[in-house]
Amino acid sequence: MDAVRPDPARSAAAGGYNFAYLDEATKRMIRRALLKALAIPGHQVPFGAREMPLPYGWGTGGIQVTASVIGPTDVLKVIDQGADDTTNAVSIRRFFARVAGVATTESTRAATIIQTRHRIPETPLSEGQILVFQVPMPEPLFKLEPRVRESTRLHALADYGLMQVKLYEDIVRYGEVATSYNHPVMVAGRYLMSPSPIPAFDNPKLHMNPAILLFGAGREKRIYAVPPYTPVRSLDFEDHPFRPIRAPHACALCGSTESYLDEVIVDDRGGRMHVCSDTDYCRERREGRR
């Protein structure tokens, strides 16, 4: 699918805002944070997040990261729940078409920047592509230690015993780790990191990914990153290895038995169908392009 280029008369300058909305001082501050985040993989860098024209919790961190990175020759894809056509994805894509005048696409391959909420695309990413995650809660320890001062100290000491104990207690109680999404990961053997609430199914895609993975949490005012080709290990135990799960079905539209599926209720008698959550991947398969 080709990129869609917006009408320049309706974009950036016409709206009276700076290119990509943010003022240059804010971009500089975010850019400095992004560079330090890449230099210290998995470490949360505090930054002076601004109020954006979208609510906190709706992707303001991702939007600020994208706005600081994006240039006029970029091609942007925005997904929410893996899909290009969910309302929040549509809203964010329209925002950037309007304030940056950039081309947009639904194709994972054609995009240079992909902003995402809750998923990593099924189509493997390649070098130079940038995946921007919207992060609601960057602190992997927050349910175990809500005090920011204390969790900051634990990261400084690389003391992640709390999380190990929690996962172990799951196993004792349930026979398996009860985390199905937002399963914590160790980045480059040093920092415990929240992968943002992606399903555990997507966690292995973080490991040694050739693309640049940037994470923005606007409300919590943190930026972090996983550079390309960086080891990312989902926390587990030798006798209970990490096990990504997907619904044991095939996509009702494209037949994939490998993609992550949405479960759709089709009637009130327990009827269900399963379809790919990644709409671009599903369409490519149906169009016979893979």
Binding site: G82, H118, S180, Y181, P199, A200, Y260, S277
Partner: peptide, 8 residues
């Protein structure tokens, strides 16, 4: 929408 996480 949270259907991806809810699915898991």
């Amino acid at each position: 929408p949270h259907y991806v996480d809810f699915q898991s």
